Simulated assay, not measured.
Amino acid sequence: MTKIVNTWKSRFAQRERFRRTLNELNMLSDREAADLGLARADFRRIAHESVYGF
């Protein structure tokens, strides 16, 4: 049972990091994103790779 709870907590923490990362990316202006070579359409993928590694 403990393993299940720890797995759940870990996944919840990852999801929270993903949400925070995506929110931070979405706070960038179009110009700031372009200066970094990022497109808004890529934000979800970038956040996902940052948190989950793939």
Rank of each mutant, 00 (worst) to 15 (best):
L25S: 07
L22R: 11
R44K: 14
E32W: 11
E16R: 15
T21H: 06
K3A: 13
I4R: 13
E32H: 04
A39C: 03
E49V: 10
A13F: 06
E49H: 07
R11A: 10
V51P: 03
K9W: 04
E49Y: 04
T21G: 04
R15I: 03
Q14D: 14
R15Y: 10
Q14E: 14
R45Y: 01
G53T: 07
L22F: 04
A47W: 08
L28R: 02
A33S: 01
I46L: 14
K3L: 14
A34G: 03
N6G: 00
G53M: 11
G37I: 04
M1Y: 05
L36I: 02
M27K: 15
L28N: 01
A47S: 08
L36M: 15
L22N: 05
F43P: 06
E32T: 02
F43E: 05
N23D: 05
V51N: 02
E16Q: 15
V5R: 12
H48P: 00
L38W: 11
R40G: 12
R19N: 11
D42K: 06
S50K: 15
D42V: 00
L22T: 03
L25G: 05
K9G: 01
N23I: 02
F54A: 08
A47I: 04
F12K: 15
S10V: 07
G37R: 08
V5Q: 09
E49S: 12
A47N: 07
R31Y: 13
I46D: 02
R17T: 06
E16T: 13
R11I: 07
F12H: 11
V5P: 00
T7R: 13
A33I: 03
T21E: 15
K9C: 07
F43R: 01
S29L: 10
D42A: 14
T7F: 06
V5S: 06
S10M: 13
L36T: 00
R45E: 10
V51T: 07
A13T: 09
M1V: 03
F54W: 05
R11P: 00
G53I: 10
T21R: 14
A47M: 07
I46P: 03
S10K: 15
L28G: 01
V51I: 11
A41G: 05
R44P: 03
